[in-house]
Each structure stands twice: as C-alpha cells, then as structure tokens.
C-alpha cells in the first residue's frame, strides 16, 4: 500500500480548473519531486493533501485511510506536515514559540514545558536558526522564514513532509547544503518527502521520482532522467 494516494482529485476555482482529475501515489521513504510551470496546480495539490482546502471531488488516502474530509489540524496530527510557498510565520511570536506550536499540538506523552522548549531549540539548530531562537519571526528575512517553516513542520513529527519551493533565494552552495539536508531527513529520520521545486538541478539530484503537473493534470511521471528528456515536458516548460 502506498503511504499517500490521490484519486481523481479535482479542484475548481470558479472557472479555473486548478486540479483536473489528478491521480498519484507516493511510497513510504521516497523523495518525490513535483514540478510544472507556474499556475500548474502544484500548490493547490499540497493544499488539498494537507486539508488546507478541500477538493471539489476526489479522494486523498493516507495509509489507505480516506482523510479527504478531515480538518487540517487532524491531518497534521496523523503525520502529514507542509510548508507554505509564501512563508506564514506567527510574526509576533519568537522563533522558539513558532516551533513550540508544532510540538505541543502533536504530543504523545504529557506536556513538560522545559522538554518542549529543548526540543524546539534542537529543531531550530537543525535548520540553522540556532542563533535566532528569541527573535520575533516577523524580523526574519525570507530565507530564514523558509527555514522556520521547515523547523515548525518537522516539529510536528511528520511521516511525510510537503515542501513548497523552499530553495528560493539560496545561492549554489546553499542549495547543495539544502539538498543534503533533505536527503538527511529521509535517510536518518525516515521522513518521506514530496517536494515542489522550480530549480530543476536540485530535483534531478535528490528526487527518485518526479511528477509533472501541467494545467491541473499529470503530464507524466518517471525518474528525473526520463522527465527531462520527455518532449511533452520540454514543450510545457518552453513552448507557449
């Protein structure tokens, strides 16, 4: 059984078919890239998977269980975490408090404040925000806000992490480090990664499979190599 599966997922916004009959399946422990031109429906698919918005029709299955009608907070507690393409930090709260939110709403044991804060500190250090623990999130720059998105999402203890364009604003070296970081998440913490990215090189290096969306439908799916040499993909990206 796949870890997470989408069946005939459709989402309409007025006349726009952001998602039109999308089918996909992601295996546990894999790194899967999601690519496609602007407006292809990638973010909308993440929103639907995370329960942030509901599909017009279609189903999302997690561990074979239909979670389509569950509210976002329950989907998170089941083990699906996501970042937002445009970061949505809790601006008036410190970085530490931002991460604490993710931890305290996904506790299995009793609540011990000092333990929670230790855990949050570790999560922040892990993404490279160790020096900004007490900084209010609104004072971060965009790259730092994206790191905070990841720290918060990881703090919920997910089985699968949905990353929405987290590499924007990084230089070549930092991109390399970020790819290492994402691999580490999968290898050491056994977190499945579903990853939207514009930077093709990064996807090519890290992902094992790639799904290509175009105008709300799956254009093709395959290994990175297959995808970049496919005529339809090249046309979708280059031909207008």
């Amino acid at each position: 059984m796949s870890l997470i599966e989408g069946r005939a997922v459709c989402r309409y916004f007025g006349g726009v078919n952001a998602l039109a009959n999308v089918n996909f399946a992601i295996e546990k422990g894999s790194i899967v890239g999601l690519i496609g031109p602007n407006g292809a429906g990638k973010t909308t698919l993440f929103n639907v998977m995370a329960g942030t918005i509901k599909p017009t029709t279609g189903r999302i299955l997690f561990h074979g269980e239909d979670v389509t009608d569950q509210p976002a907070y329950r989907i998170c507690r089941k083990g699906i975490a996501r970042t937002f393409q445009i970061p949505r930090p809790f601006g008036t709260m410190t970085c530490l408090e931002n991460v604490v939110v993710g931890i305290i709403n996904n506790l299995n044991g009793p609540y011990v404040k000092s333990d929670v804060e230790d855990k949050a500190r570790i999560a922040l250090k892990f993404v490279g925000l160790g020096d900004l623990i007490a900084t209010e999130a609104r004072n971060l720059n965009v790259v730092q806000k994206k790191k905070l998105e990841i720290a918060r999402a990881l703090a919920t203890g997910p089985e699968i992490l949905l990353l929405d364009e987290v590499l924007g604003g990084l230089n070549t070296q930092e991109i390399g480090e970020a790819i290492e970081f994402i691999r580490l998440l999968r290898d050491k913490q056994n977190i499945t990664i579903f990853w939207i990215e514009h930077i093709m090189g990064a996807i090519m290096q890290a992902a094992e499979r790639v799904i290509v969306l175009d105008q709300g439908t799956v254009l093709m799916e395959g290994t990175p190599r297959e995808v970049v040499s496919d005529q339809r993909v090249i046309r979708a990206y280059l031909g207008e």
């Binding site: 942030t52 998170c76 975490a81 809790f90 008036t92 305290i104 996904n106």
Partner: peptide, 24 residues
C-alpha cells in the same frame, strides 16, 4: 499555558496554526 501559545498562533495566522495541528 499551552493554551496561551495556541491563542497567539491562532491570532497570528489561523491557516498556519491549523497546518501545525492547532484545533482552531
């Protein structure tokens, strides 16, 4: 308390809060 942290998370951004497991 724990609740207070959630209060402020909800006030800042309901959608982000829900995505982190907060029952808004």
């Amino acid at each position: 308390s724990r609740l207070g942290v959630n209060f402020r998370a909800v006030q800042n951004d309901e959608r982000a809060a829900a995505s982190l497991g907060v029952n808004v």
